[in-house]
Design a protein around this nucleic acid. Structure first.
Lengths: 220, 220
DNA sequence: ACACAGGTTTTGATTGGGCTAAACTTTTGT
DNA sequence: ACAAAAGTTTAGCCCAATCAAAACCTGTGT
């Protein structure tokens, strides 16, 4: 299993993330969007991944991770999330910036270092965004989440993460005292794609647009 | 100043290392040897570095780092040596392996993380191989060293490092209780490129061949 | 003085990753 | 039912980094 470049790992991770978002098969355009490349680039890369046996690709119909591909994705994800936690805990990297640091480190982390870090952290199960960390042998406790935007009034749950860990959003939310792990209740949702009124603790916040669509909630 | 790929950084570092070894101008072959690539590859890369203003290259005559090139080399070197120290001290990576880990991490270490690590380590001046760590602003206290092989009987000094931090050699030496930082005295040197008899503390060791040529000593 | 060995550079090919523009397939709207 | 829109793939190009083979300098020895 060679040819395992950073790009290949990133695509596997992206496809995994997209598969989690409901759709069983993932479109080329979705991959391109997430990777920030053109559809043409994504298409040719998908062909490579298929050749490597990491995905099954039915032209014009979409792509799906194979077991081998899933393994790759989860390994990178484990690296990523362990690093996020490590950077936040032991080096005091501001928690809205650990994502970007981890993004580049994840590809060069040796298995040996991964092991040392995991041990040092006490084999943690969740990263600082509230995301579960895959185990060494590729298992993950992925509780299903819903976009805050899709919840109706009365819904209760835990704010789990911001998809893609967008630092801007994380900072914005942090400024108003909102962070992954916090309990919430939806008070009201304006129609016509309008904002949602959410209670965090005592405070009610109005969240709309991209924000409410990116915030993932684990419902009770 | 873009186009700063890992490869460019590695070449700058290699050229810096070779310049330290006495010769003012560095040959293409020497670079190729150190980088583990063919002379052709080194030659074309040298042309790139010249175009970027990192070296001055006189065809067929050799290469020399410019101020800009030196700055690049010392920045990477600072990353490398801070990482070596960090990995050894806080993660317990065996000290004969920190070099290889640092080799890949040095290129993706952000300035921010570098700062946090340096602070956490108390702004250290030397790495675990005994090599000085360049300062943020590109200064380095490079004490001149001599190959153990070049010392004569009676010479005293401190074993400073193994050039290129060869893990095999480091392990071999560690097994016999020899490590950078140890004081030594040359007892005898056999003629005709023969081995050298060196006292470390109470023990006298016989070191010859590639070993004595790679061990760098800072003379009193 | 000049040929030859050894070091250096050039040439042309390859691989990984990306882009634009054009071709092709599928979906959608009327 | 069929054309337009939307999505996907292909074709042809670029750049970084490498290699092997060929062409090219340089210095040395006779």
């Amino acid at each position: 299993m060679d040819g395992m470049t950073s790009a290949v790992q990133d695509y596997a991770k992206a496809i995994y993330a997209l598969e989690q978002r409901g759709t069983t098969t993932v479109s080329t355009n979705a991959i391109a969007g997430r990777m920030g490349v053109t559809a043409a680039s994504a298409s040719s890369m998908v062909k490579r991944l298929d050749g490597m046996g990491l995905v099954t690709h039915v032209p014009y119909r979409g792509v799906q991770l194979t077991d081998a591909g899933l393994k790759v994705a989860l390994e990178v994800l484990r690296h990523h999330r362990l690093l996020e936690l490590y950077l936040a805990e032991t080096l005091g990297v501001p928690w809205d910036r650990v994502h970007d640091e981890a993004e580049v480190l994840e590809h060069v982390l040796s298995e040996e270092l991964e092991e040392l870090i995991a041990t040092k952290l006490g084999d943690p199960t969740h990263d600082p965004h509230g995301d579960p960390i895959p185990t060494r042998d590729g298992h993950i406790a992925e509780a299903p989440t819903t976009a805050l935007d899709d919840l109706g009034p009365g819904a209760r749950g835990t704010f789990v993460r911001v998809s893609d860990s967008d630092p801007e959003m994380l900072r914005y939310l942090a400024e108003r005292g909102i962070a992954p792990g916090h309990r919430l209740e939806v008070i009201e949702k304006q129609p016509f794609d309008g904002p949602v009124f959410v209670r965090f603790g005592k405070d009610v916040h109005v969240l709309g647009g991209g924000l409410a669509r990116s915030m993932r909630v684990q419902e009770d």
